[in-house]
Amino acid sequence: MNFLKRYLTIIIPSAIALAGLVVLVLTWLSNSALKDNMQDSVSMGSQVRRLASQTPSEEQYRVEASYQNMHEEDASTIENMFLQTTMRELISYQIFPKPDDTSRQLFTDYSKKYRTAVEKMVENAGGVDAPSEQEIKNVKAARERRSRSEEGEDPIVEALCRNKAASNPVYMNPRNFPWYDFWHKYEFVSENIAVQDCWNSQVALWVYQDVVKSVKAANADAQSVFASPLKRLLAVRFQKRADNVDYVSRGAGKSKIIDEPYYVTENNKPILVASSVTNRVGDNETLDVIHFSVSVVIEKSKIPEFVEELCSEKMHKFYGWDGNQEEKTYQGNQITILDWSSMPILRDARAHEYYRYGDKSVVQWTASCEYIFARKAYEEIIPESIKTKMQGEED
């Protein structure tokens, strides 16, 4: 008892101190954990606030849906524009893919309409030809009654040639286009062959029209050959280069050139160029590809402008493949130039004898070109025999 009394005054304060120390340690540990928890909470709160600021509004999905719809509409618009390039006017709406009837008169009517279409095409471009052989004979007969000039030139012939050049902006003749002569006095062989002839000449006409539109645009408002940058259209060909044909069109030769459009496929390699820079071939699903060649007499300095016109967009009409739909105007560019060359001309050569190009430097410019069609656009009217040729198979 005396021991307890002696040390009680020491034990009680020590116990209190020890208890206080324990409380202090526990408090420190608790505060450290609380601080860590608070830091975690603050960090989490910052992340929540940051994510909240970046979280789309409840209406954002509508904006995104509209954005995606715009992309779909753009893609659809581009596809429709591509299809529209191939939606073109037909000479006859009674033949493709099969004739409405078996009458030969159907093809006789087609031949007349085709030749009329080519003549109007040339007329609309302001095309004129050099004096005909008969006109030259007439002035030569008149010359015999007159003396020749000191220089040895016939002033009457020269005046006739210059008057022709002054009367229109470009030398062009329907006979520059082989299918025009082909349909002259057409001889029916069989329905299958006749349908193929109609199709091939129709496709050729679409190409002719785009080339002639380019010529007309290149010459703009020129009223004479002398003022025109592009003086003369020499030829448009599919089976051979246009600088490799006879250009003299004054003589009324009756030979009929079969110049079928040449479809380039995996099986049908290009024949106008060694290889195509585009590497495009018909796939019988998306594209049909043909090559053609065009040759002109043009001022040397104006070649770039004509290249641009050839590759520019052009307008055309469409009435549906049955010809009964409301008229629509479409535009598109189907021409790509694959290669080209130019060479000087000899003005006194037979091919240029009665043509007058003016005083500026002119050259013969020839190009090999690619022309594409959207298969889906005209699939429904392609004759079966033509589809076989498109695939590069034997008919």
Rank of each mutant, 00 (worst) to 15 (best):
N168D: 13
R88T: 08
C161R: 03
M38V: 15
N284A: 12
M81F: 08
Q105C: 09
S293K: 04
N267K: 07
C311P: 01
D395M: 07
P174S: 10
T116C: 06
K317L: 14
S32L: 14
S276F: 07
Y67E: 14
A15L: 12
F226H: 07
F238V: 07
V207L: 06
L34I: 14
E394P: 00
D359E: 13
F3C: 13
G251E: 10
Y208G: 04
F82S: 09
V48Y: 10
L29Y: 15
G332S: 03
R6M: 09
K376N: 11
S255E: 12
D359N: 09
M315H: 09
V189K: 15
E191Q: 13
W321N: 15
I382Y: 00
K113S: 12
I12Q: 07
R280F: 09
A141Y: 07
D154M: 06
D339I: 10
I271L: 06
S41D: 11
M38I: 15
N37Q: 15
V63L: 13
E72G: 06
N244Y: 10
N176H: 05
R115V: 03
S43K: 09
R62F: 12
R237S: 05
R175N: 09
S385I: 00
Y355E: 11
N37G: 13
G392Y: 00
Q331T: 15
E153R: 11
K360Q: 11
Q94L: 13
D395R: 02
V236M: 00
T27G: 10
Y371E: 04
Y247I: 07
D197R: 00
V281M: 03
Q47E: 15
M343Q: 15
